[in-house]
Design a protein around this nucleic acid. Structure first.
Lengths: 205, 186
DNA sequence: ATCTTACTTTAGAAAGC
DNA sequence: GCTTTAAAAAGTAAGAT
């Protein structure tokens, strides 16, 4: 009886230690990504819910913590791509994506697809592009997405192409390589999306 | 307009069966030309047929999985070939082993581009999975028939998980009517 | 810059780790 | 959970030319 009691405490302590580890990891990754405190709070709420619903069984604590942070960034409207998230996590991109889809489904997060426009401010500031370019890029995304061009395309590649196009139209040209680097997509992807967007906008460069 | 049902094409059929006899895969691998067997990597021996094209996974228990066939008839034809090959090796094979179709993969075309963002919200975010950063298709699980459909921006789709060819037809009908009700198929 | 190859997702069975 | 098989959809990526 006394032994059972000790076991319970031991289990409770272990669980508590795991939770603390997960939360400190979320904090560490959030700091590395430079996201606001609100995102860390949303991420820890998601993690605790996943823990309560027993979704961690068969998965790594680190994987669930990373996925919770990825989901939190999106929920808060300041998405980080899986590529960016995986750079501050020790879990590989593919696993983060899988775990995210799992907890998202199980917790009924009902996440909306990422809006490419959400990447525009951050990517543009990293490229030191003006407000005018941002506005133009948003306009391109808005109009071409309305025409159905966005279906199935990656939000980062889509945003990158619009930014590249906008930089040309506003005479603040950035090379495809420069934009590709901040968005972490290939030049080929920018080229392909750019071509479609320009066509749909009826523009010629 | 062409009925999307008429664009349905079976791309792959997975079936299981058994010869009712245990096998020594090591010797089968030696005698059967073209057989791939690496027990360290996978417990089944892989044997490919050319006409019709398919791959058979043969296990020590005598159970066999056939995949890659384009129709249920092709599954039977492929397995007939596999059974005969085994008989040539002096292995006893039951007369007419029961062949169970486990999964049918189908492709189809709705003939119209799809706005996957609108469909995701229209069908209900809780019922679908759409993560274009990870995969370009929208994943839609149906209850009746119990299949999974992958919808693409081009209007093409893949239906998998069905056990009968008609499952795909019913699935396409339901998807079309649901999208029409939502006004997303115009 | 374009081509080729390859990987992402879905389902299902098999035997074993 | 993973391993292996095959096949489609379309996007993305990497390496070669």
């Amino acid at each position: 009886r006394l032994r059972k009691w000790q076991e319970r405490i031991r289990t409770k302590d272990a669980g508590e230690r795991n939770l603390q580890f997960a939360l400190s990891e979320i904090d560490r990754m959030a700091s590395a990504l430079g996201v606001p405190r609100s995102v860390r709070e949303v991420a820890s709420v998601i993690y605790r819910r996943a823990l309560k619903e027993d979704l961690i069984r068969g998965r790594s604590i680190e994987g669930v913590a990373t996925s919770a942070l990825y989901a939190a960034c999106r929920k808060e409207g300041i998405p980080r791509s899986l590529e960016e998230i995986s750079e501050v996590s020790r879990v590989e991109r593919k696993e983060i994506g899988r775990t995210y889809r799992y907890i998202s489904q199980e917790l009924g997060l009902e996440m909306r697809p990422v809006d490419p426009k959400k990447y525009v401010p951050r990517f543009c500031s990293e490229l030191e592009l003006s407000e005018e370019v941002q506005t133009k890029a948003n306009e391109i995304i808005e109009k071409t997405a309305e025409k159905g061009l966005l279906s199935g395309k990656s939000p980062t590649g889509y945003a990158a192409a619009a930014i590249y196009a906008a930089s040309l139209l506003c005479n603040e040209k950035k090379t495809q390589r420069e934009v590709a680097d901040v968005a972490q997509v290939t030049e080929v992807t920018i080229r392909n999306r750019y071509q479609e967007q320009i066509e749909a906008m009826g523009i010629h460069g | 307009m062409t009925d999307p049902k008429d664009t349905i094409n079976i791309e792959n059929v997975v079936a299981s069966t058994g010869i009712g006899q245990e096998l020594d895969l090591q010797s089968v691998a030696m005698d059967l030309e073209g057989a791939d067997y690496d027990p360290e990597q996978f417990p089944g021996l892989v044997y490919r047929t050319q006409n019709p094209k398919s791959a058979a996974l043969i296990f020590r228990s005598g159970k066999i999985v056939c995949t890659g066939a384009k129709s249920t008839d092709d599954v039977h034809e492929s397995l007939r070939i596999v059974f005969d090959k085994l008989r040539e090796l002096q292995i006893q094979v039951n007369e007419d082993p029961e062949i169970i179709v486990q999964n049918i993969v189908t492709s189809a075309d709705l003939g119209r581009n799809l706005n996957l963002n609108a469909i995701a919200i229209g069908l209900g975010l809780e019922n679908i999975e759409y993560e274009p950063e990870q995969f370009p298709g929208l994943v839609y699980r149906l209850d009746e028939p119990e299949v999974v459909a992958l919808l693409f921006g081009s209007g093409k789709l893949v239906i998998t998980g069905g056990k009968k060819p008609v499952d795909a037809e019913h699935a396409v009908d339901k998807i079309v009517s649901r999208l029409e009700d939502l006004g997303l198929l115009e």
